[in-house]
Design a protein around this nucleic acid. Sequence first.
DNA 1: TTGTAAGCGTTATCAC
DNA 2: GTGATAACGCTTACAA
Lengths: 356, 356
Amino acid sequence: MSRRTAALGTSGEPAPLGTADDVRSTPARLVEVARLAGVSTMTVSRALRRPEQVAPLTLRAVQRAVAQLGYLPDSAASAMATRRSRIIAAIVPTLMNSVYASTVHGLASVLRGAGYELMIGDSGYDLQTEASLVRSFLGRRVDALVLTGVEHDDATRQLLARHDLPVVEIWDLTAQPIGSVVGFSNVAAGREAGRYFAQRGRRHWAFLGTRPGREGRSGKRLRGLRETARAAGVAAPVTAFVEDGMSAAAGHAAVLALLDAHPHTDALFCANDALATAALRAAADRGLEVPAALSILGFGDFDVAAHTSPALTTVRIPGREIGASAARVLLAQLDGNGRGPTHMDLGFEIVQRESA
Amino acid sequence: MSRRTAALGTSGEPAPLGTADDVRSTPARLVEVARLAGVSTMTVSRALRRPEQVAPLTLRAVQRAVAQLGYLPDSAASAMATRRSRIIAAIVPTLMNSVYASTVHGLASVLRGAGYELMIGDSGYDLQTEASLVRSFLGRRVDALVLTGVEHDDATRQLLARHDLPVVEIWDLTAQPIGSVVGFSNVAAGREAGRYFAQRGRRHWAFLGTRPGREGRSGKRLRGLRETARAAGVAAPVTAFVEDGMSAAAGHAAVLALLDAHPHTDALFCANDALATAALRAAADRGLEVPAALSILGFGDFDVAAHTSPALTTVRIPGREIGASAARVLLAQLDGNGRGPTHMDLGFEIVQRESA
DNA sequence: TTGTAAGCGTTATCAC
DNA sequence: GTGATAACGCTTACAA
């Protein structure tokens, strides 16, 4: 017997309320709308989703009832019946700074426009956390999944293999994607940074980023930089690493230490613009003129990059476009346009300002 | 008849698969686990949620079956049965910059720890968009809602009145909250900024923020600043407004214009640190020394604030703690600890560095 | 400790 | 154009 009915009386149904300003603790359901409109639940359901399949008069009656009861369809129930949740999940390494902000924004806006909701997870740059997020999102029966990067835990791959849903990996590229990839080549970005330094006669390069233990995206950029150093006949770049999600505080200290240990350093490539801003300050602290004595190249083209002094020269990543494209790729697969997995290289671009 | 069964054969159920490495297109369901373990679905359900209520041997059998099938409970189905989605939604004005990043992070981490998922919406500082997000989140039957600010559309208030779920408003305070409030007084922050300027002998104040049309949080800060100006016998602050989500680019231009129009300005209060960073640059562009000629006071204490040159003096908001506390307030209400709505003033603090 | 039956609110299917 | 019925995958209530 219905717990709900039991709580409300013996009529077998909660008493319908008549006026628009009634406040009800239990939200209206389809049956109540149907009863009020004098039609079956199926007709209400149709009226809501395919108004053109319903007689104009019926439609009006239903709409009135919906308005009167303040009815909002229960999407969980709908998800059960259709086996589609209209939820898409995205996992990004961090929500603590601007790095992935525009990507998330791009995702969210395209998805909302198509009637999907975005569920966000924050892996903290940890692949096991990512796996556990994937697990819980799959439990929510999300319709598709966005993963940042192309390195994943085995557990993640197994889960995804079992569940067979559209997946996009973003912010990097790979020859063996899980599903689609929408990003840019981090190795190429590192190489470009090196060329930029080489062209300006820099001979003592440095890199500031996360420890490339798992060969993440930061590590790939370092690899690209090293390749160019070798090709240009320049010494291998010295490195400084920050652990905790790339905070500016850690970056500032790391750059100070690096400059003290390697005073000849004349070019520094930073893994993001927050780090680069901190590096700018560290250079000032050591009395180094930027870019005369030290070139500083950022990554990400954050909002503030154009307005520091000196203004940051940085690698611009089309973050928002990555998010928007990833969303479109997934929607195309979901809406059954027959589109298979897609591989998109959205590139990057060095924005020259003052710091390098 | 079952659409699913029809698609898979005549057995009335999809054929169970035997080995762990089988790849199945349809995720395993409770019945299949039950069959494999030789028990009823209820026993599996219990084994998963209250292992202590199940005989050890049965438990083992169930766990084996779960592992073998890679079973993940369907939380949408669970939501239907229990009438609890274990999803909490939060609406923030923007995801495009760092302002609400730590708040979202605080929310997400506390909620995940309690087995809840966070669904995020981005209102773009628009109350109608907020209303439409609220509508769709209520349709998802979220268990609770976090709203930024205390100004809302009528539609929002009506929807919430009908649906009666725990709500927290954050990042501000009010005497008439919808449910709980966790934040700080924006008016007081504005007043404090004024006192800070007054104590340092500043006489020509300026304010950079969003247009206070709807008396939002930025407008309240301006109001506080004005009050102090009056009390201190100083001229009313001149103002510059940015429209588009407070971008640094717009801020830079606005400050330039303001400094040209009001060259005597000796104190500037910015609505966030991205704006303040841009203001730092604008002051440099005009040859003004900071803070000697112009004090610049930021808001938010973003990651980079400590590492600009000069380092930003700014109003620190406990963003992460706001998120975490809001989450805890909601959880307390949901887990039926009998806790009613809560009012928390988490305050703020001026962090003195170099720019003011 | 375990199982049976009913129901959560919607939609697909098929008949009218 | 509309309606009756049976799912969707799980859990509550109750019985064994």
